[in-house]
Design a protein around this nucleic acid. Structure first.
Lengths: 150, 150
DNA sequence: GATGAAACAGCCGAGCT
DNA sequence: AGCTCGGCTGTTTCATC
C-alpha cells in the first residue's frame, strides 16, 4: 500500500473501466505492474468490487428519504433479515442517539414510502426525513489523505 | 427500457466488469445487442458511471458518522461549495425536519471527526450520530420492481 | 437483432535491471 | 525480487445479412 496504489484506487473509483494502459501512464508504470497491484488490492480486500451507478430518477425513484427507526435489541434479530430483503433500502446504519437505526430508502412516490413506514412501525417508533436534494454523493473514498499504512 | 434492459442494469450493478458474453447468455441475446443496449443506457442517463467500491476500513477510515446540520438558507451558498471540497463527506442530503442537512462522513478516528464538526459549527448547530455497524450498503437500485416506463 | 471478422485490451510467459 | 517487453487469449466492436 503505497502512494501508487492509492492513486490507482482513486482512478478506479472515478472510472472502474479505465484501461490499464491509461492508469499505467498516470502512475509511470507498465500495464502488468498495474494489473498485479490491482489484483493484489482485490485479494487483500481494499477493492470490494465494481459496480455500475444507476440513476434512480431515470428508473422512476423520485423520492429519497432517511428513516430513523427505534428498534429494541431483541427486535434486531428479526429486523436485520427483514431489512436485508428490502430492495428499496439502499443503506441501513446502526447508530448512536435517540433512534437506533437510520435507513436510506428510495421510492417512486410518497405513497409507497408511507406504506413502507407503516410496515416498519412494528419494529418501533420512526421519524422520517424527506430528501430535497443531494449535493454530494460520490461515495468515493479519498485514498490520498491517509498516511502510508502497511 | 424493457425487462431486458432492467436485467442488464441489475447485473452491472452487482458486477460492472461482467463480460458481455456472460450477460448475453443470461438475457438470451448476442453480445453486440447487449453492447448496444448498454451504450444506449449510458447515453440516456440510466447509467451514470462505473466505480470501484473501496473498503473504508482497509484504508484506515474506522469511523463513520451521520452529521445533522442546521444551515440557514443564506448559509447554503457558502456551505455547498465548502462541503463539495470535503473528501471525507461521502454524501450530503438537504432534508426536511429540524436540521436542514444530513452529512455522511468517514474519518480515521473520532479525533478528526471532532475537528471536522468544529469546522461545521460556523454554519449552524449540529447533532452527530456515530455509526456502529452497517447492515445494508449495496447502493444498488432494483430495476425490476418498477412498472415498464419508456 | 444475429453472425462473422478485425481491433483492442488484458494476461502470462521470458529476459533484464 | 520486481519491472519491462514479448506473444497469446479473450473480449469488444464493426460490417454485413
Amino acid at each position: 500500500m503505497d502512494v501508487v496504489d492509492r492513486t490507482i484506487l482513486n482512478i478506479l473509483q472515478r472510472n472502474a473501466k479505465c484501461p490499464l494502459k491509461e492508469i499505467a501512464e498516470k502512475v509511470y508504470l507498465s500495464t502488468p505492474a498495474v494489473s498485479a497491484r490491482i489484483e493484489k488490492m482485490e485479494k487483500e480486500g481494499y477493492i470490494l468490487g465494481y459496480q455500475a451507478q444507476v440513476n434512480p430518477e431515470a428508473l422512476g425513484y423520485h423520492i429519497k428519504a432517511l428513516i430513523n427507526l427505534e428498534v429494541s435489541p431483541e427486535g434486531k434479530t428479526v429486523f436485520y433479515p427483514f431489512v436485508r430483503k428490502c430492495s428499496n433500502v439502499i443503506e441501513c446504519n446502526c447508530v448512536t442517539g435517540e433512534y437506533s437505526m437510520v435507513l436510506e430508502v428510495l421510492f417512486p412516490s410518497t405513497t409507497e414510502l408511507d406504506k413502507f413506514i407503516g410496515e416498519l412501525q412494528r419494529f418501533g417508533r420512526t421519524k422520517t426525513l424527506i430528501v430535497f436534494s443531494t449535493s454530494v454523493e460520490h461515495r468515493g473514498i479519498n485514498a490520498d489523505i491517509e498516511e502510508t499504512l502497511e
